[in-house]
Amino acid sequence: MMGLLVQGVLLGGYYAILAAGLAFLYSVMGIINLAHGALAVVAAYMLLLFSQMTGMSPFVGLLLVLPAMAVIGVIVERGIFEPSSRGGPLLAVLATFGMSVVIDNLLFQQFGANTQSLANFIGDLSWDSWDLGGGLYVGKISVYTFLTAVFVLGGLQLLLTFTPVGRAIRATAQDSDTAGLIGLDARRIRMISSAIAFITIGIAGAALGMRSSFSPYAGGALLLFAFQATVIGGTATIWGTLIGGIILGLAQTLGAQIAPQGFLIGGNLVFFAVLFIRLLRGDMNWRSVLRLNRKATQ
């Protein structure tokens, strides 16, 4: 039982990384990016290509892939997010959904249906574990993933709270017209925000590839996990993402104990249970992810 709980919590760290970019884009730009999962898969394939071609570790590959993701983030912001959000939030939903269909099928066209993994390129890290005593083992990669989640979310928090760029991002998120009046270039801020979100998507892609396998059509499921983690946890603070991820991870791990399909059903049920509780309590403000940061600076 203890083992299950630890597993569930560590899995939650993975979901938190996955959710970070989705929640960040939504809270600062009001865009729900339906291609989020597909983009994480793209990052995983880029790392795979790098390791296959150079024989080097995907950790080295991140040095190339993360900047590449940032550039893609800027391009997508200029090409899709910005023009579509001018027509209202609904068009952005359609455009990013179209983007996910295109990405999924291009990946399939390029790489075929085979499942791939980065596990072969990270040596014994993929199976090594620590013995916590009492027959309790935790996989090293899971622990590292969890620590990365804490690092990524903490980094976002520090960035938003203490840096000039972070202040500019928050100001633009709250009221981009007024932010423009005091001399902030909203377009530039949006490009930076998008680049930051895409870097976290790149990290999520690395976590995906190293701890499990992926295939061209894996993006949809990833989007759903990220979304569920964000909705379950994301009300008051940026750390809500981590809490949401952990609740989702626990629900899935425990669900899997009951029935083979229980893994996904457990997660989905918790998601709807949380929605239902919110319905009864009457607060449903997912955008308040930023609130803590606002308080932190006051």
């Binding site: 989007l223 759903l224 929605l275």
Partner: peptide, 23 residues
């Protein structure tokens, strides 16, 4: 439950609903 969600949240929320029905 679903109509409490707005815009993109509703969009993905419905996808989650579809995946639950499937399972």
């Amino acid at each position: 439950v679903m109509l409490r969600l707005k815009d993109g949240e509703f969009a993905i929320g419905m996808w989650v609903l579809a995946s639950l029905c499937h399972l």
